[in-house]
Design a protein around this nucleic acid. Structure first.
Length: 354
DNA sequence: ACCGGAACAG
DNA sequence: CTGTTCCGGT
């Protein structure tokens, strides 16, 4: 009775950098600090995955504040999760229980008042994926809210913008500042990466960082989107890194790739590089850049960009989406979740609400 | 709907 | 450790 799921295999392509379509997170992103071996996919990874795919906007989507998302179709999400884990009897009640365990872990919390609405704690999530980055970000992201010194022990409010700033173009006002990690990269001789010390380039004076204009321009305001869409890795072709700097157990490349190559000249180069859209425009690996839509998925919750008309009234949901049961579990046939048939366009479950 | 304890699987 | 299953309580 052991479902033999091969899903994981499909989710971990041989080459971490060039995951083919739809671009999921590279394999390293799926291996938090505590990955003894190859742990199974975790729920929040899965949620993130769904969240970044347009096909699932009908079932789950970003909405509200930073990191807030709403499960529009709990039943569907539960079913998809059940498929992923080969748990045919999964339902929202169980899934939500797993979600609730994240509360204590500070990965998620509930947006009270709003049904099926949860919110990611980016600080924690990012900390898991980018321990080093988070440290760098800490002094910068410390936003003393009304709670006084509130930044919890592990909960420095990390906003997508801040991350964006860190990731995209670290060219700070001073200009002479070092591009975040480039310092390490260009001056490895100093010593090994000092993860245990404060970052010089992110001193207390960095409080007044400027937000990426590219993101502010169109909307005049920061929108609660792209927390996970902006992936810089998505934009950079992953240059080969000196193994000396990046041991296997260290970040393979993503950060360095994006950060290391950008400081060519922010002033003369052009506007702030928008990692979101700066994907295949270059050329390099543009060979297989397929589903990375130029506009990505910058749909504001309450602003313009109504819906994706691309999705017809209904797709052939029964074609490959035998999700009702363990189609991909016993058999090796995959495709339920990897490139699953899009949800039935919410047609089947109009309200799903109350 | 949402919460969280408890037992249990892998 | 991460969930899954079940369930009483709000």
């Amino acid at each position: 009775m052991d479902c033999n799921c091969v899903s994981d295999l499909l989710f971990t392509p041989p080459v971490p950098a060039l995951w083919t379509p739809g671009f999921a997170f590279p394999d390293w992103a799926y291996k938090p600090e505590s990955s003894p071996g190859s742990r199974q996919i975790q729920l929040w990874h899965f949620i993130l995955e769904l969240l970044q795919k347009e096909e699932y906007q009908g079932v789950i989507a970003w909405q509200g504040d930073y990191g807030e998302f709403v499960i529009k179709d709990p039943d569907e999400v539960a079913r998809l999760w059940g498929i992923r884990k080969c748990k045919p009897h999964m339902n929202y009640d169980k899934l939500s229980r797993a979600l609730r365990y994240y509360y204590n872990k500070r990965i998620l919390h509930k947006t009270k008042g709003k049904r099926f609405t949860y919110k990611f704690n980016f600080s924690k999530v990012v900390l898991v994926n980018y321990p080093l980055l988070d440290m760098a970000a800490a002094p910068l992201l410390l936003t003393p809210g009304p709670f006084g010194g509130a930044a919890g022990p592990d909960g420095p409010p990390l906003t997508p913008e801040a991350l964006q700033t860190l990731f995209s173009t670290p060219r700070l006002d001073t200009g002479s500042r070092t591009p975040l990690f480039a310092q390490h990269l260009s001056a490895p001789d100093t010593d090994k990466l000092r993860l245990d010390g404060p970052f010089p380039f992110l001193g207390p004076g960095t409080a007044g960082y400027s937000k990426p204009p590219a993101l502010l321009s169109p909307y005049g305001r920061t929108f609660p989107e792209y927390p996970w869409n902006f992936n810089p890795y998505l934009a950079s072709p992953f240059p080969k890194l000196p193994a000396s700097l990046y041991p296997p157990h260290f970040y393979p490349n993503p950060l360095a790739g994006s950060l290391g190559q950008l400081p060519t000249g922010p002033g003369g180069g052009g506007p702030a590089t928008a990692p979101l859209l700066a994907g295949p425009t270059g050329d390099g690996p543009g060979s297989q850049r397929t589903s990375l839509a130029p506009g990505a998925r910058l749909t504001l919750p309450g602003t313009g960009v109504p819906e994706v008309p691309s999705l017809g009234p209904k797709e052939e949901s029964d074609s490959e989406l035998e999700v009702t049961d363990v189609s991909g579990c016993s058999s090796d046939s995959e495709g339920d979740d990897g490139a699953p048939g899009p949800p039935e366009g919410q047609g089947s479950r109009g309200g799903a609400g109350s």
